[in-house]
Write a protein that binds this DNA or RNA. Structure first.
Lengths: 259, 259
DNA sequence: CGCGCGTTTGAACGGGCTCAAACCTTGTGG
DNA sequence: CCACAAGGTTTGAGCCCGTTCAAACGCGCG
């Protein structure tokens, strides 16, 4: 209904970095009327980075990038042009196997970092697709690695955030390991609940942004198994489900399910 | 060779670091007789890092750390004191679940980087244990993050190498996904073969440094399943097995098994 | 030697996959 | 506005593969 002819300038996914910066990075005058820039402070807030702000770099601005549901944020194999921090929305990060099998690595949401697997070989190693309309903040490659000024502050922050993402990915990985599929789904719901809570939403009632199939590809089970696990949890009175909407009736029971 | 006593104190961001550096970092005189130091050049070689060497930092030396089989290189929860590059030997990196279930994330060998999950929260998030006698090279936290001089060169290299490790871990992850256990084992053998080849050893005949149980914990199957998969591959004439010793008779057949 | 541990093989059970069908939601176009 | 198509969700039935339990063997080490 809205945004009639979307993507005004936002050229494709991967043009050379140069085309991304046609004009000055410090259009302070336009700040009020133009929502498409984020400050370094906002970046710190999103990432929950506790490092102190660098002198002289407070005026630096970072370009935002809007995506509609279904659009690709990053595509595997395309040249690295920077990192992205999620400001709004939910995405899925996935790798596709040679034989078509895919695996969903994570569901990035507000505050998560995208693209850090692209630094090695200077091309992204996974696909990232928007599940809902999204708003990303771009940290250009040129800002990350050109030494001098206050830039290694940025690189350090990126490194720190990458380490966090890896850590959480490993956690999710071990989640896959739980023998029973019902336990995996229970854990998955717990982590989603926690993430919504961290973002200031209700941990008891939320709407899943992803399909059952995506959940299955994340937990390494089939769609049917995910659906059956939901049904079983409903049967036991632990949750209530209405399609994408989840109500957690007993966090305790959900927690005790983890084995 | 230059700037003789740079970083005189190398004050530790972490207590443990102190015990590791009882004396100067540049004992040039002892270099010939003491094998316990590596140069920046050697680090570049190990990591296969193609960045150009920074001016003035060629004389910097990095302490080595020897481990006997079974010893811990890193333990989960302990304070971050730096990154390590494997110079010799094989290790296993694993995370242990709350309920005792464990998962082997990777088997680091020559050239692999350890500890990059410790940057977030400044403590390591996984255990790393030596499977064979090992020789590691330490990149101290203090060298990584103290900005100034040529140090952000080191940080950039570390970031780059971390990105590579993540990438390969994700690859291994997708390896777990292959439906058939026999296919997982076949792929595992292929990657091991490739890694031995990259290190200059024979890709056809090698000795696995890890137990069947470790392989199982890596591929998310039981010991028995791994053993049965080996037996099946032997039955089909694709490999020959004598305990830890593997002979790959047909790479082609092994490759075709991947589905 | 005897103990612990790694490896191999067998037998039976069960959980998740496959295949199939029905229902519901959403978006598109007449 | 409705019809239709496409895709998401749910449930059932049967089968297969990997787990579990059990036992035997080999190897290294105190």
């Amino acid at each position: 209904m809205m945004h009639v002819q979307a993507i005004p300038t936002t050229v494709p996914t991967v043009p050379a970095a140069a085309t991304w910066q046609p004009h000055s990075r410090h259009p302070a005058l336009k700040l009020e009327s133009d929502e498409r820039w984020s400050t370094l402070q906002e970046l710190h807030g999103l990432l929950q980075y506790e490092g102190h702000l660098q002198e002289g770099s407070e005026g630096e601005l970072f370009r935002r990038r809007r995506l509609k549901a279904g659009q690709s944020a990053l595509v595997m194999g395309q040249p690295f042009d920077g990192l992205y921090v999620v400001r709004l929305g939910t995405l899925k990060s996935l790798i596709t196997n040679a034989d078509g099998g895919m695996h969903v690595l994570s569901f990035p949401m507000k505050g998560n970092l995208l693209g850090f697997d692209g630094i090695y070989k200077y091309s992204y190693m996974s696909d990232v697709v928007a599940l809902t309309d999204c708003d990303l903040v771009r940290i250009p490659a040129s800002d990350l690695f050109t030494s001098g000024r206050g830039n290694n502050h940025l690189e350090h922050m990126a490194y720190w955030a990458s380490s966090r993402e890896i850590t959480q990915e490993q956690m999710a990985y071990s989640l896959t390991r739980s023998v029973k599929s019902e336990a995996r789904v229970a854990r998955f719901l717990q982590t989603m609940s926690q993430r919504f809570a961290d973002m200031g939403y209700s941990p008891n009632r939320f709407i899943l942004p992803m399909t059952r199939r995506d959940i299955g590809h994340h937990l390494s089970v089939t769609v049917e198994t995910v659906s059956r696990a939901f049904s079983a949890l409903v049967q036991e009175g632990i949750i209530a489900v209405d399609f994408r909407e989840i109500n957690i009736l007993s966090h305790e029971a959900l927690c005790n399910f983890e084995r």
